[in-house]
Design a protein around this nucleic acid. Structure first.
Lengths: 89, 89, 89, 89
DNA sequence: AACGTTGAAATAGTTC
DNA sequence: GAACTATTTCAACGTT
């Protein structure tokens, strides 16, 4: 009789706990990242530069999907604009 | 071939240069701040204490602003109430 | 000419790749979360409410952690007091 | 008599107010920046990409001073490492 | 699907 | 040069 009330509760709890499980794993991974950066820093590497490299490589990756990034388009556009300005000067 | 040639480079460049202009002014102002602190330090004042004073005065100001926004909320609430009453009448 | 050739590229690359590996796992987990929410939604549950529950449980957990750290502080304080007493004796 | 007490107070206040004046100008400039980004966004430009361009141009500027950035050095190092790995494969 | 809002991550600046 | 603070940036979320 009361199944229609009870069961959803366990179902909800199941979703909640699955999410919480994932959140814990996310947290652990993020701490792992921190540790790696700390380790690199401890060996004298510049963490900010490492982050920059990661960003660049990620961009390259994204571009392979989209053929051409917005950044490229914008850069080419202002390149053209600057050239025009230079000639006019 | 592509639409990308349509991107108005001069417009982008204009935004970029306006921001860079502001950034330079920000930089100049921040150097001005440093100079003032140096000057104060040179006259024997404790820079850390000066910063604390600034922080406190800023807090006071923020609280005053906060109060005002609360006031706004109340005033608006009254305004709404009056409008409702007017319609009901 | 420059010292730059000395930079251990393989070491840098190792750090970079370890981070990228973690980033991929993070991405996968986040997609997993989305899937779970979608699944819940598909069964008629209100995702917004689920998020709220997660938020509340996280708050409770944080408060419990907070309490524990307070406990740590007290315990350490007692520890210190005992050490001082021991030396005085 | 009390000059040695009084005068520093006005002197301190002078420093405080000069700083606060600058802080206001900083705030105004920062709001100006926000407005420009909003304006650009309103015209359909991607603010994040604009930020990226600003970052790149700033980097270029910095590099002109330092001849070669750490980023370049690291990139060359991992380039070498990757080449070695590729050959070994 | 654009918008502002929020909360977390990163950066810069300051202090010790 | 390491930790802490404050500001800035970024991504996710809900809203319209």
């Amino acid at each position: 009789m009361t199944d229609t009330v009870e069961i959803p509760g366990t179902r909800i709890l199941s979703f909640i706990e699955r999410i919480e499980q994932i959140d814990e794993e996310l947290k652990a991974l993020n701490e792992g990242k921190k540790d790696i950066f700390s380790e690199a820093k401890g060996e004298g590497f510049d963490v900010k530069v490492l982050r920059e490299i990661l960003r660049l490589r990620k961009q390259d990756q994204d571009e392979r999907d989209e053929q051409e990034s917005l950044l490229d388009i914008y850069l080419r556009a202002i390149q053209t604009a600057e050239t025009v300005q230079a000639k006019a000067a």
